[in-house]
Design a binder for these strands. Structure first.
Lengths: 296, 296
DNA sequence: GTGGAGTCACAAGGACGGCTTGTGACCGCG
DNA sequence: CGCGGTCACAAGCCGTCCTTGTGACTCCAC
């Protein structure tokens, strides 16, 4: 299990060029930085930086590890920002209520962007309080004023609320990389036993309805599981193809763990919307600022 | 800074359904699990799981945090596998030498897939020893036998070596999401001051050559920086557009931090190749197994 | 040439966090 | 009604990690 603090120190060393400078940057002494870096090197068995009497520079391996660390720490920062936004005790600024899909995959990076922007302007960042529930409850919370801003998924625009499309999600057919499909007609998809969520899940409904609209009836699933994560794991383990939200598997697609198979004649798009009450344009400064970071 | 161990415990609780079961799964006592989970909840100020006298189930917020944790821990596992592969002391199995681009962005997930596959078959995973350098040195190491397998970038196939394309990388023009470009002709790209790497860098050369081939001359850069990460940060900070490897910014594209702008009449593809010596098909079992996880 | 300011590394001491063991309260089931 | 399961609280202990103090070394200015 990698040590995030040590990786952060490595990045500080890369930026500062000296151990002491890195120490000042992260608020530690030079000795502590030296020890942590030595510990990281001992864990990997590779020299990550060459120390001279006048500074320290990363080796080639050090650059690679720094790159890995950078990705990891960026994601960790997103998670941390998300965790901070979950704090409910603070009776503060912008109350955001979001559906699970948005909260899980999109909001953290928006919040980081929001905070970075405030830092760039020298302002104190808006404090965001996040609640995560299903879309119906989000609508309810925005209606009754217990949330200033909501994020929902689904095709219908709730009556009496203002809204704006902030992102699109689509369900995609995915297989393991060694699968022989490259592109299939929609009829073959309907005839294939899939790994799916249990009946009643939103993702599964969308697919069923779309196939029914196309005049097709689905065969029985190969496997029914109760969470998207479990479905994803089953596909990776070779249990069969699945239709999943693209947002949930961008990492896997980028890393080549999963492969997307286009289905001719089928499009399963759904819109993710920001919703709020009141005037047509987003009301308070806070809401507008957050939305200004989100481009559909 | 989030606590990876605590997040892992949260996932174990989600899987097991009880704190004690989670404890058995991660090798801790029930009391330790209870304390760590309580600490995590106190950090967020939100109840992540409801404890009954007969188990524990995640709340809606808990599910969201678990999803974040899952992404973060997957990436952490990749980094950890990469770190393990850097260990040089073990005089062991498969010596892999890779260019920086491949080592930074692709190899970790391949190694995780390799290990997971071995675990699924019940075999002990191949021990991989990784060296990261530039493409020329990779070729040299494969030639002189100090590496069993190499990964390089570039258009030319080295003479005397077998090779296979394992992935493609392309340079893409990226801007901040609020930029007004949607698609531009190649002449406008050449006339735009960009944030770039310093002269002599591979990425910069590729762009310069491609523009020269198109009969265009580039204007002076807006800013010259020495690492890809610095260029990326400058673009995010609004310093201007840049042309970067798509592999280095997939996260940013997915999160909407950066936006890709198609350039009409310009394609900057480069192939990433596995190289080895000897017979036409990959030789030892180990090499073939690793390659079987990589599909171009 | 020599002192000063910078670099990094080694050693000793102390504080804090986190795990274990021990125990108690509660619930359901046979 | 006891037994097996759940989780929470308390005390003690161990290890990690940071700080302070010190030494070796290099470069530079005087």
């Amino acid at each position: 299990m990698p040590d995030l603090a040590a990786l952060e120190i490595l990045l500080a060393v890369a930026r500062a060029g000296t151990l002491s400078g890195a120490g000042r940057e992260v608020g530690l002494t030079q000795q502590a930085v030296s020890a942590r870096l030595a510990a990281l090197e001992s864990r990997t068995g590779v020299r990550l930086a060459t120390r001279t009497t006048r500074g320290a520079t990363l080796t080639a391996e050090g650059v690679v590890v720094a790159q890995w660390a950078d990705r990891l720490l960026r994601l960790a920062e997103e998670v941390d920002t998300g965790l901070a936004a979950l704090r409910s005790d603070s009776r503060s600024r912008l109350r955001v209520s979001a559906s699970l899909t948005v909260a899980e995959h999109l909001l953290p990076s928006w919040l980081v962007a929001l905070r970075a922007d405030a830092a760039r302007r020298g302002e104190t960042p808006v404090r965001v309080v996040l609640t995560a529930t299903n879309s119906d409850h989000v609508i309810e919370q925005v209606r009754d004023g217990s949330a200033d801003l909501g994020f929902i998924e689904g095709v219908t625009v709730p009556a009496g609320l203002r809204s704006r499309v902030v992102a699109r999600d689509s369900l995609v057919l995915v297989v393991t990389p060694d699968h022989d499909w490259s592109s299939i007609p929609v009829a073959e998809l309907a005839a294939t036993p899939l790994v799916t969520r249990e009946s009643g899940s939103g993702t599964r409904e969308v697919l069923t309805v779309a196939l029914r609209d196309a005049g097709l009836e689905q065969v029985e699933p190969a496997l029914e599981l109760s969470t998207t994560a479990a479905v994803r794991a089953a596909v990776l383990a070779g249990a069969g193809p699945a239709v999943l939200s693209r947002l949930a598997i961008t990492d896997d697609l980028a890393a080549g763990r999963l492969r997307e198979v286009p289905v001719a004649g089928l499009s399963l798009e759904r819109e993710l919307r920001a919703i709020w009450t009141g005037p047509r344009t987003p009301p308070a400064g806070a809401v507008r600022i957050l939305l200004s970071h989100i481009h559909s």
